[in-house]
Nucleic acid binder design. Structure first.
Lengths: 243, 243
DNA sequence: CGAATCTTTGAATCCTCTCAAGTCTTGTGG
DNA sequence: CCACAAGACTTGAGAGGATTCAAAGATTCG
């Protein structure tokens, strides 16, 4: 219908448009999955759609939490900044999940981390005011929202258990396995490029150390550059590295 | 009223009793804070109260999530077991928070981690069936439940950011600061004893390494054994170690 | 094309882990 | 209440891994 529903044309500028929830492909897996769109059409009007290029800040820690975002496509990181300026990624958010859950909490709540796109990302922005009426008379919606909180806890857990435990070699291998975009039948995994810095921030390590591990993977033929923006892995070997 | 409300007499056996929500001291800070107890009295009858000694398993990962527990007093850890038998603490749960949030999700949900007491702990067990009727017609309760999810995310975050980042010396110092039981006005912090193993599991380290750091703290007069089951810290020095 | 940013590599240091042995605690049963 | 056994904690020595600092090489973007 609108350009908004087509994902091919988000270059290095962001666009926005009115969301078309009725025909949204992602909706069946997101928080609005069981909501009767026709019934609440009026309420859903304030929802808008965005496409951000990679490395775009969606919101900053400390900003007032007025909207939440459903990720339709792409990858978003939530990160915390330390006094010394270094950063730590505390959650990764993929298709179907929500960025900015704080919005559901009391008024005057602030975002706790900074949300930034890692890849090109499409999102629907939903203002806080959309939810109260739906919550009021749709009991399923409550379950869907709790499912979202649960998913974020799992993401946090994963970073704790998989990306912060074991040798750096294991941790980096697990990050790549998590990022797999598509898997060919011949055991080759395709991965969109991600910065060494982000992997370091995820694994609680340094750029240099991560770079060394990746270089080692390349030397061992475990990893090859398949196209300018993609990497290719040998699944079996990568899983062995992940332990 | 009942023995259940008195916390002095939980020795190395656990006791249980019917909960007395109406006179519960903890209630105003927990998930039932804004619930009208009189109105739902009938529903709340299945709630029972327990007192477990330290190192008691509340439930195991994989068990069906049929009940949740409100911590009235004490400290509980949620931990994940790896293939090689080692463990990692992924959350700490204190007074007023909930152990077993999975219970709110769909039926047939399983507990994802194993919950174990670290100190002597008093809990109220609330069966899953208690909640649907309250959720149905108390809109505040929904907010309270989300607040609980939010708290758990923060706990997870804290372990990620404070206990898994930086040198081991920093991480251990931060764990002690977190565990502070009471602070005297003269800058002395009292801490209930916690096993070296648990600190290692929290900081993603080993018993030996944690033991060495603690020994160093003792040598530097930063830490002293104030009573058989307690430790005492110099707050200023400890904060300096935490960075 | 050039500046800014990100990545790679080297060398030295420091930190943490591992393994192994010894010590201390704790809980149990006599 | 004491003695013993099992478990938890401590300590040492050596090896290996990760960090730091510094400098050079790539990429990216305007």
């Amino acid at each position: 219908m609108t350009k908004a529903l087509d994902s091919g044309n988000c270059w290095n500028v962001s666009w926005e448009g009115r969301a078309d929830c009725k025909h949204c492909a992602i909706r069946k897996i997101d928080v609005l999955a069981d909501v009767d769109i026709d019934k609440y059409e009026e309420y859903l009007k304030p929802i808008t759609q965005y496409c951000y290029p990679k490395n775009t800040v969606i919101y900053n820690a400390g900003n007032e939490a007025t909207d939440l975002y459903v990720v339709r496509k792409g990858l978003v990181k939530l990160e915390q900044t330390f006094e010394d300026g270094s950063m730590r990624i505390v959650r990764l958010i993929q298709k179907g999940s929500i960025v900015g859950l704080e919005t559901f909490l009391d008024h005057k709540q602030k975002y706790e981390q900074t949300a930034t796109t890692i890849h090109k990302t499409e999102l629907c922005r939903i203002p806080e005011r959309v939810f109260p009426p739906i919550l009021k008379d749709d009991s399923h919606f409550f379950l869907a929202v709790m499912g979202q909180w649960h998913e974020q806890l799992e993401s946090s857990n994963q970073i704790l258990v998989e990306f912060s435990t074991g040798s750096l070699r294991q941790r980096v291998a697990r990050v790549f396995l998590y990022l797999v975009d598509e898997a060919n039948r011949d055991g080759l995994l395709e991965i969109k490029k991600i910065s060494v810095q982000d992997i370091a921030s995820l694994t609680s390590s340094t750029r240099e150390s991560v770079s060394r591990v990746v270089a080692e993977f390349k030397r061992n033929q475990l990893l090859t550059k398949s196209s300018p923006k993609k990497l290719r892995f040998d699944e079996v070997a990568l899983r062995k590295q992940a332990e």
